[in-house]
Design a protein around this nucleic acid. Structure first.
Lengths: 192, 192
DNA sequence: ACTTTCTTTTTACAAATGTTAAATAATTAA
DNA sequence: TTAATTATTTAACATTTGTAAAAAGAAAGT
């Protein structure tokens, strides 16, 4: 197995133990993608056929609503980054993926991965757990947005994800929280 | 296999084909719970150890924020209803499940189910797909709430889930959309 | 049918957030 | 370093949504 994937695999094995053959097969599917800040990993309109993890750096998923760019998701080191609705239903995605800084991704093509599941039960289990975790995180996010004021959402992000506030331009954070830049700026000034 | 589960199993098999032994084992885990309108399937504070499907009727997941009841999720016929953060992380849930009308649930205890996964790969695959679908639905919901006005959210629900508007009291719909009853009422009056 | 309870709408007002535009501040490139 | 670009804050005002209370309407129980 390639040396360069060691740390990635030890992260995966914390979630689900893998047999040696499974690791071997999976690592054969992994490749690395290196992009510079502001480069796009996936364009809007393409169907998502690859599962990515951020190895190092920071990326985000975005889309446009009425011509305004909205950030849907942030991904940092170790984070899974997929456009689920496109990957699972094989539809062109309305969303794109772009880098907020120079970023290394680990890329796994979904079709061959799904085929591995037939022979390697442990890989499917790993993947199930990854999706489970993503699901729980998304439910939490609904809770956070559903009935909280702009200020509460900002404070909650500050508390639960301080790295976002440090690393990410405020304009991206604002739309992630579902508020305008101006509103976010106002909130920050009353807190300071 | 029990006759009474026929329609439920044909629904499951549309998602993932199951071997006969798998069906047999799974059906042995299934039981039925019948509740009347307004009865609680799960109380707030209990750890979720059961996976439910609505066989017939209508239920919802709710929680309290500052003493106000908020509806997080609606479930109708065939819908999976779980409190994911509790089920997957084994923590007491801040949420409860209650019936909006007389409802039959199919109940599957999670621990025995997860153990079946070791011998029955197809059951784990079925479950993975169910979670995948729930995940996509939740991502869509974030999109719907994140940057849409109260009116847009209501119209979107009207279009994508007309049965909700017909079956569910408006007070529950309001908090589901992240707005107040008064606001929802106002919106409806301007549309009419 | 009548009463009680629960749900929905309406009103009036307050607070929060959006919009537009301009002013600062910070970053990047020449 | 300066100029150009990009990001953030501030201001003024418009709009949306929330709050509290009352009124109207619908459903349930006797």
């Amino acid at each position: 197995m390639d040396k360069f994937l060691d740390s990635f695999f030890s992260y995966l094995e914390d979630i689900q133990n893998l047999s040696n053959p499974s690791k071997e097969k999976l690592s054969n599917l992994c490749s690395r993608v290196r992009l510079n800040k502001n480069e796009r990993l996936q364009e809007i309109g393409r169907t998502c056929k690859t599962i990515y993890f951020v190895e190092e750096g920071a990326a985000r998923i975005f889309y446009y609503k009425d011509g305004i760019e909205i950030t849907e998701y942030f991904a940092f080191e170790k984070d899974l980054i997929i456009r689920a609705e496109s990957l699972f239903y094989n539809q062109p995605s309305k969303k794109g993926i772009t880098c907020m800084e120079d970023t290394n991704f680990i890329a796994i093509p979904s079709q061959p991965l799904f085929e591995l599941f037939n022979q390697h039960h442990d890989l499917e289990r790993l993947f199930r757990k990854l999706i489970q975790n993503a699901y729980v995180e998304t439910v939490r996010r609904i809770e956070m947005i559903q009935f909280h004021t702009a200020e509460e959402r900002y404070l909650s992000l500050l508390q639960n994800n301080p790295q976002v506030i440090q690393k990410v331009p405020l304009k991206f954070i604002a739309s992630y929280l579902g508020i305008t830049q101006v509103s976010l700026s106002r909130i920050r000034s009353t807190l300071a």
